[in-house]
């Protein structure tokens, strides 16, 4: 019960929803850059939302699945092929033993996607999670990105898994958004380290995603954000989406592999929902921030839960359909 990696692609990692509960030990949460897509992919297959899948970034993965399974590519459409035939994202496919799954590359709606398998990926739990944290060689497949020749185990799927073949997630439920949508943010814990002009720049101007992006953070290019105090603070906690502004005035949005603590002033914190949207963007994409209230930020999360429930009901109905 496994798949073999023929080509690993640009960056392919095993991720579940993250290693929560150990930040006080200095252990990074990691987990998926777009958790909403991973959760939906798992729901489509009848998996647990926290089951581990492959986080695929950009392009190039090529695997051979040794056992029959259903698979879904949830997230950006990365031109998947199954045994040579084009296969859609957000669609469950039955794959017979020996099937080859390849990921061609970007088609324009984002850069990360989750290849979910019915039953999920079976790697050892490390501190309660299967997520890979490469910097500390923690979790996932031997603590690292996949390489050619790796043999990755799969869990046994739950009963009736096969009946999910062909299920499509309706476009209106998918958590994908245009790559120029405004990014929602709330004022950060050190907003008083910035001048009014600096704050206006942050919420008013257009930034672009720089070339310096990874799972730890997204550095943005654009106008300098003016500070009125030193950007160096006595280290405190860094939440997902925290926007740090070092002395050079260029914002860095902290993502899944962020360190647990840091010493730069945080002007804002991107909402959980929007951080996953930013994670789909590529160097050169525009980024504009919009100041939102806590209620609005949380409303997106409630809305997603409703979509997830709708999808789960659809899955149940789909499986019990007349054939």
């Amino acid at each position: 019960m496994s798949f073999v990696v023929e080509k690993p692609g640009a960056l392919t990692l095993v991720q579940d929803l993250g290693r929560w509960g150990h930040q006080f030990r200095g252990v990074t949460v990691s987990g998926p850059m777009d958790p909403f897509s991973l959760r939906m992919g798992n729901i489509m297959l009848g998996n647990g939302q926290n089951d581990a899948a492959l986080e695929i970034t950009l392009f190039g993965l090529d695997i051979i699945v040794n056992e029959e399974r259903c698979v879904v590519l949830a997230g950006a459409d990365l031109n998947m092929r199954i045994n040579g035939a084009p296969a859609q994202s957000w669609t469950a496919y039955y794959v017979p033993p020996g099937s080859r799954i390849t990921i061609g590359g970007l088609s324009g709606d984002g850069c990360r996607s989750y290849l979910c398998f019915s039953g999920g990926i079976d790697v050892p739990l490390v501190m309660g999670s299967r997520s890979t944290y490469v910097r500390a060689s923690l979790g996932g497949y031997n603590g690292r990105a996949l390489k050619s020749g790796d043999v990755v185990n799969l869990n046994a799927p739950k009963p009736l898994w096969r009946l999910g073949d062909g299920l499509v997630c309706p476009p209106e439920l998918r958590p994908m958004r245009p790559r120029d949508e405004l990014i929602c943010a709330m004022d950060g814990p050190q907003i008083d380290a910035f001048t009014q002009e600096g704050i206006n720049t942050f919420y008013g101007e257009t930034f672009t995603v720089s070339n310096e992006i990874d799972r730890m953070g997204y550095r943005l290019d654009g106008p300098e954000i003016e500070l009125c105090k030193s950007p160096d603070i006595v280290s405190d906690g860094i939440a997902l989406g925290a926007v740090q502004v070092p002395g050079h005035g260029r914002p860095i949005v902290m993502m899944s592999d962020r360190q647990t603590t840091g010493g730069y002033a945080k002007i804002a914190v991107v909402c959980t929902w929007s951080a996953a949207k930013l994670a789909q963007r590529l160097p050169g994409d525009p980024v504009r921030f919009r100041r939102v209230s806590e209620d609005e930020a949380v409303s997106y999360l409630f809305e997603f839960e409703r979509s997830l429930e709708t999808l789960d009901r659809m899955r149940a109905t789909y499986r019990s359909r007349r054939r």
Partner: peptide
């Protein structure tokens, strides 16, 4: 979800769907 102490503050991580 968890408490993260730092030099001078305590960060409390929570699920806003469960508690405001």
């Amino acid at each position: 979800l968890e408490y993260v102490p730092t030099y001078r503050s305590l960060a409390v991580y929570f699920n806003p769907l469960s508690i405001s």
